[in-house]
Design a binder for these strands. Structure first.
Lengths: 218, 218
DNA sequence: TCGTTCCGTTTTGTATACAAAACGATCCGA
DNA sequence: TCGGATCGTTTTGTATACAAAACGGAACGA
């Protein structure tokens, strides 16, 4: 594996998992030393992250990790709604029914999965759902656009720290989407996706607000 | 200006204007010599272009300019429809009516503009339309996504070499979109955008087909 | 006390040298 | 004649050295 890829993946992982806090200056020299690569491949990694929006180079010379504000999450979801409602519509048009039938069952079992195997097991099912959508849409450019949005979503989700009650509702919403796609009902798939995204956004913003006021009390 | 930015802009311009033909191997050494920079900033430029999809690094080690196929254009328009129909909807919700009233007049005059000042003057109006949409939407993440799609569209459009008859129809379609946005009619703005995109795609694919069969005859 | 300017330090931007890997051509064998 | 392997050449990937620019602090003046 190339050193630049290694640096990219490590940095990306650090940012998405909040190991690097927003606002932290990303010094090339320091990071290169920490990751054990020279500055040249590290610069390439930083450039990739900057183009993905995970590093903000607009302020000053040194890149920093942008913070996750309520406004930025709301903007992200506006873009996400544009992409995912259309993706659901296209998926319903071109899907393999068996794939989504299987996902319907997975989401119906979500309560058990969550209780037995924890939150990561649930997110694994969601990841499978995303991959099924990508495959059904069958459009590389569309997939890349969706991936970009999902990347940023990971950060927002980790911050919001989804509560089990919300996850159970989300599983139900996902099940509805899968049923619509399985049945080839484009309009319903699109609408059900919109419903899910609005509910998710509301939940995340509520968590963010609660956290913000908690920080304020301190 | 940084050498890497210079190399990026020059290369990007060369690719978008078809001065570099699809399939051409992008040798770092040769390009660095031609642009008068060293390989380090040139590599950064190539990396940026690769992430934008203007350079394909998936095949072999040397990057090449991807070609514009009918399939890739159709895929691009699927993504474009997802973004622009939603952008039109959001723009209708938040617009400054005066801005789009002015654009309505511009597109109504398009026939004269085209006859008097040529095709570039018409595309300048379209660029103003795009900027008005961006401003009305007011969502940085959305704007970045739209910019990415528009970049690829430039290549497809240059290849298709729009005919005046099509441009006049396109101006009419744009006028309809602007009227809907001006009036705050979200549903109509979205639908009118979908109509315009489908017509544009059909025109581009027809030109591509004609060119393909012409190449076949040779 | 506040603002401004200058200088030292740090950090980024660029160039070049070297190492590694991949592609292509040629030669050998079946 | 065709397939495959090996070697040479070319190209990329990485490291390091140097130049330039920007930030921060201190000192000076108002």
């Amino acid at each position: 594996m190339r050193a630049s890829d290694l640096a990219y993946e490590r940095l990306r992982d650090d940012i998405l998992s909040w190991r690097i806090a927003p606002g932290t200056p990303l010094s090339e020299i320091e990071l290169a030393a920490r990751l054990g690569v020279s500055r040249t491949p590290l610069r390439a990694a930083l450039a990739r992250l900057a183009l993905e929006g995970l590093v903000d180079t607009s302020r000053g010379r040194t890149g920093i990790v942008p913070d996750v504000s309520a406004a930025s999450v709301a903007e992200l979801f506006e873009l996400r709604e544009a992409l995912e409602t259309q993706a659901a519509r296209l998926a319903a048009r071109r899907r393999d029914p068996a794939v989504f039938e299987s996902l319907v069952a997975d989401f119906a079992r979500a309560s058990d999965t969550l209780a037995a195997s924890g939150i990561d097991a649930y997110y694994e099912v969601v990841a499978r759902f995303d991959r099924a959508i990508d495959e059904a849409v069958g459009n590389p450019a569309f997939r890349i656009a969706l991936d970009g949005v999902r990347t940023h979503l990971v950060r927002a989700r980790r911050m919001a720290a989804d509560k089990p009650a919300r996850l159970l509702r989300a599983a139900d919403e996902h099940r509805l989407i899968c049923e619509a796609i399985r049945d080839g009902d484009e309009a319903l798939a699109s609408s059900a996706t919109a419903v899910h995204l609005r509910a998710s956004l509301t939940a995340i913003l509520a968590t963010l607000d609660a956290r913000a006021s908690q920080e304020g009390i301190r």
